[in-house]
């Protein structure tokens, strides 16, 4: 397997620090992501709280190549209680340039104002080769902020893909205030990941 092919695949597999993939009805979300192998901008619109449609533009830093994909996310199930919310999503994406490059998978989360847990399982087809990626994430809010305050989360994320034999575990810090969110992750392998999101 060529090094370029492997790095491109890693680009696709480095599926960022996923925040809420669907917004409230009529809302738009703009996300920017950056790590050592790619920069991306992802915009999605949620006509209802049950699904979102979006486009993602990626700058592959290794191949020095740009590409774009269309993404669709659907809420399969939601359970609201007085102090918690649980979600299960279907997510998919297809490249504009090469339709046989695509992914689909499920993502789930359960959160209260204090605790967070989530998972993601994704299957990717790239140039006819199938790969999988999965992650699990647990988080705790060190304090409970009021509405409009700065909210902070300390998280641990474990991920693995078909390329690797071992799980990669690293810390993630998440801060949000108002309509903006920032997530920072660090691992020895990929160094810093930064994810910024704005909802409007």
């Amino acid at each position: 397997m060529g090094i370029r092919f492997a790095m491109t695949l890693l680009c696709l597999l480095a599926r960022d620090l996923d925040a809420r993939p669907i917004s409230y009805s009529g809302a738009s979300t703009l996300m920017a992501f950056s790590n050592d192998i790619k920069n991306s901008v992802y915009y999605h619109y949620s006509p209802t709280y049950k699904y979102s449609l979006g486009v993602e533009f990626v700058r592959d830093k290794f191949q020095k190549k740009n590409y774009a994909s269309l993404r669709f996310t659907s809420l399969l199930n939601r359970k609201n209680t007085q102090h918690s919310q649980r979600n299960l999503y279907f997510q998919s994406g297809i490249s504009f340039d090469e339709p046989h490059n695509r992914f689909y998978g499920i993502q789930g989360d359960w959160e209260t104002r204090r605790w967070y847990s989530g998972f993601n399982f994704k299957k990717l087809d790239y140039k006819g080769v199938n790969y999988t990626e999965q992650f699990y994430q647990f988080g705790v809010a060190p304090y409970i902020g009021e509405y409009g305050d700065l909210h902070s989360w300390i998280m641990i994320k474990s991920r693995k893909n078909s390329f690797e034999s071992n799980w990669s575990t690293y810390p993630v810090l998440k801060f949000f205030k108002g309509n903006a969110l920032i997530e920072l992750g660090y691992s020895k392998k990929t160094q810093w990941d930064a994810h910024i999101m704005y909802r409007f």
């Binding site: 809420r20 917004s23 409230y24 009805s25 809302a27 939601r78 609201n80 209680t81 007085q82 102090h83 918690s84 919310q85 959160e111 209260t112 104002r113 409970i144 902020g145 009021e146 509405y147 409009g148 305050d149 909210h151 949000f176 205030k177 108002g178 309509n179 909802r199």
Partner: peptide
Amino acid sequence: KGMVCDFCARGIEKTFKRDSSAIKVDVDLS
């Protein structure tokens, strides 16, 4: 039920602030 984060609450606040008959809106997340 299900209002567990600022983003959820913000959506509700925005929705009702668009309602011209609503004079004032407050979201008590806690």
